[in-house]
Design a protein around this nucleic acid. Sequence first.
DNA 1: GCTCCTATTGATAATGATTCTCATTATTGT
DNA 2: ACAATAATGAGAATCATTATCAATAGGAGC
Lengths: 143, 143
Amino acid sequence: MIDRASMPARLRAEGKRVTRERELLLDIIVANPHLDATEIFERARGVNPRIGLATVYRTLRLLETLAVIDSSGLGEDHSHYEMHQKDHVHLVCSECGAVLDVPVPFDVRAFGRRRGFDARLTRFELVGVCDACRAEPHGGRRP
Amino acid sequence: MIDRASMPARLRAEGKRVTRERELLLDIIVANPHLDATEIFERARGVNPRIGLATVYRTLRLLETLAVIDSSGLGEDHSHYEMHQKDHVHLVCSECGAVLDVPVPFDVRAFGRRRGFDARLTRFELVGVCDACRAEPHGGRRP
DNA sequence: GCTCCTATTGATAATGATTCTCATTATTGT
DNA sequence: ACAATAATGAGAATCATTATCAATAGGAGC
């Protein structure tokens, strides 16, 4: 996992500016993995009501380009974000939306290399129903 | 892989009608895995110029609901489709767009079960650069 | 700390993918 | 063949994301 404290230096190293907005968005992503752009936007407004949605998308794109954050669908048709970390599988509960990160049980780089691929990024997800939701067939919608 | 010939019976069993459009779209998906909705639409028009894009999306949604086809992003921000088949990893070349299907090297169901998840569907992708594209750094854009 | 240069922001229009609406058409049971 | 109604086609509507552009604010130099 990338260290939050090193981000300002990292941005400057890339010739980018360290703005209030970028700091705020990074804090939100670090503290809440798996949020989507709208959810990040809402939380950001709670702190800085003047922030715009465009800034959220622009910042997410920048951070993803810098490989600081990763995006994934998590069973839905839009992106969710988290700080970049070692290859892992997202176990997504289609009932309650819970997401569990589990290390990939094999060497992904070697797996790709064996097939002539130089792996740049991975997205592994397993969508299903978690224990809790299987236990209570009635309630248990998205939190 | 689901057998194309059994699809009409499968549709009727679900109380759905077997239309020219559905037959055509199934043929296209079987013959060309990993196409997106627009590509499927274009090929379909080649055979039946009267077909509408809405029908393509409706049919894709229906077939996915019936677990006849699966969708995945393949490194892009929209869905690509293929007949449902056993769990596999998509190796996607970000340079030429080539997609390679490789069996998942571990037992996905058991993997999920061990974490309290009842796996319904999986999406494993590894985005990188294939041998061919690494060989020729100049050309080699999307086919 | 003050200024200037320009990257970044905010508001909003634009785009792209997908879904919805509704009148028309075609599939299926009889 | 006929009627009942599910499915289609065309286009409007929606949702996520990107582009545009004037206003604002980092940060390098003084």
